[in-house]
């Protein structure tokens, strides 16, 4: 159990104990001190515990392990281990251009004010489809991949700027897609035929 989880767990335990005390002896709230204690136990502490737990779940939902917990995503995870640097996700994962523990989320989120929350709301739909609906044979993005998600890290990097000097204006304005040239991604349908990075595993 990491530190943050321990803090939230401790908060939950304290809150349960105080709520239990008030619920078992509601007469305590007759006095002013009891009223204050009840307000903290029934309102402030549960709210704080929920907020802390929510932040904890949000952080864990960005992890590669979280995405890989759905079987549908397994081939996409395996594609990160293809031993061929022409495949963009594999090259990013293997060369630590993205944090391996947050590999999916780093590229598949919108770098906007509510990008994280938008991704999680989309995730609700994914869970529904996973358990109740029909999982499509070919998984596609909701909208064309925006350069913004690449430029969030690459723009300003010397090797990127020098190599893309002529295309920079159209890349920044999204008129030219990064994917026009870098067009090898997750070849889930031919994984068996491609070489894999030996001994490597996903987080």
């Amino acid at each position: 159990m990491d530190f943050a989880t321990g803090i939230v767990a401790s908060l939950l335990v304290v809150t349960v104990a105080l709520v239990g005390l008030i619920a078992l002896r509601p007469g305590l709230t007759a006095a002013r001190g009891g009223k204050v204690l009840a307000f903290f136990s029934f309102f402030v502490l549960p709210g704080t515990a929920f907020w802390g737990g929510f932040q904890l779940h949000m952080e864990h939902s960005k992890s590669t392990r979280f995405c890989m917990s759905c079987h549908v995503m397994e081939p996409y995870g395996k594609s990160l281990l293809i031993d061929d640097s022409n495949y963009v996700p594999a090259a990013h994962f293997q060369n630590r251009r993205v944090d391996r523990d947050h590999a999916c989320f780093t590229c598949h989120t919108n770098y906007t004010l509510f990008g994280d929350y938008k991704a999680k709301i989309g995730g609700l739909r994914h869970v529904w489809v996973y358990y109740v609906g029909d999982i499509p044979k070919k998984i596609e993005l909701y909208e064309p991949y925006k350069n913004r998600e690449c430029l969030h890290c690459h723009d300003g990097a010397r090797n990127f700027v020098e190599a893309h000097e002529e295309d920079l204006p159209t890349l920044r304005s999204n008129e030219t897609s990064c994917l026009d040239c870098h067009d090898q991604f997750h070849p889930v349908d031919k994984l068996a035929t491609l070489p894999a990075w030996k001994g490597a595993t996903l987080p």
């Binding site: 989880t5 939230v8 939950l12 349960v16 709520v19 619920a23 929920f50 904890l56 939902s61 759905c70």
Partner: peptide
């Protein structure tokens, strides 16, 4: 107060249980 307490304790226990499933969408 007792009813509110029972509801809160149930909610808190469920939230505590989901801490063991942090890496799973169902936990969230």
């Amino acid at each position: 107060l007792r009813v509110a307490g029972v509801l809160l304790i149930l909610g808190l226990l469920i939230e505590g249980a989901t801490l063991f499933a942090l890496d799973r969408p169902v936990g969230f």
